[in-house]
Amino acid sequence: MSRWGRTARRIPRQFAVVWWLQLKMLAADAFSGILQIVWPLFFATTAFLMFRISGDHELVFYAGLGATVMGIWSSVAASSSSALQRERWLGTLELIVSAPMPFALVLSSITTAMATIGLYSMVATLIWGWLVFGMSLHIVQPIAFGCAVVVLVFAIAMIGFLLSVTVVRYRSAWAIGSLLECPVWLLCGLLVPVALLPVWVRPLSYVLPPTWGVRAMREAASGTSPWVSLLVCAVLGGAYALMAALIGRSLLKSARRQATLALT
């Protein structure tokens, strides 16, 4: 087998192994796990109650689908921004950097595991919306809907990847992560249509992949074609991953040169 062939086989395997190990580690903390499900549910419940008063069932369905994505972003926002800091405290950062595996691959696998954990919250919100608020679970194109969820999880994970490398020099990176929770919910139109936001804010919404991901989910659910939105979401997610890999590489080079890798 050629060198490229071996690399092509090795990379998905390495990604899957790191993703699975991280997923098991994240799932082991029951208290945090419960909180990750419950916390976005409080916001989703508030939104459900507010839209129920308005009596507009379409709005309930619109916001309900968006609310399911809130938990995925919540599970990535704060934890990805402090991902490198955490490895540093655990004393595993040097091991990750010196491993014969691209640093970007390890970090993107970690943030993908964080986003995957958010799927618990997504399912919980769907069930909660259905049971308590009578939200319709009728999805016209279930396969396209499933694809939209997978691409959305990937895209949110890549934002987390970019966040993890851009805020690494900020000592209290977790504070930036938790600060970004509500703005992304708002900007990506999870509860409110983007068209309702001020005109100058909308370009920001359009460069955030979840805006397109959640739009694809809604399109798949209502029966219109979601593929263009899905493609934009995937391309933006890929662009975030590329940016994160490049920034990560330059940061790593600088940390090695100045011997600051292990400094907390």
């Binding site: 508030t46 939104a47 507010m50 839209f51 008063i53 308005s54 507009d56 709005l59 916001a63 600060l179 929770e181 509500c182 703005p183 919910w185 708002l186 509860l191 409110v192 249509p193 309702l196 936001l197």
Partner: peptide, 15 residues
Amino acid sequence: FQILLFVYVGRAARI
């Protein structure tokens, strides 16, 4: 940001 989020949700729900 929490204030902004719910102000906009309120505007969308018109309640």
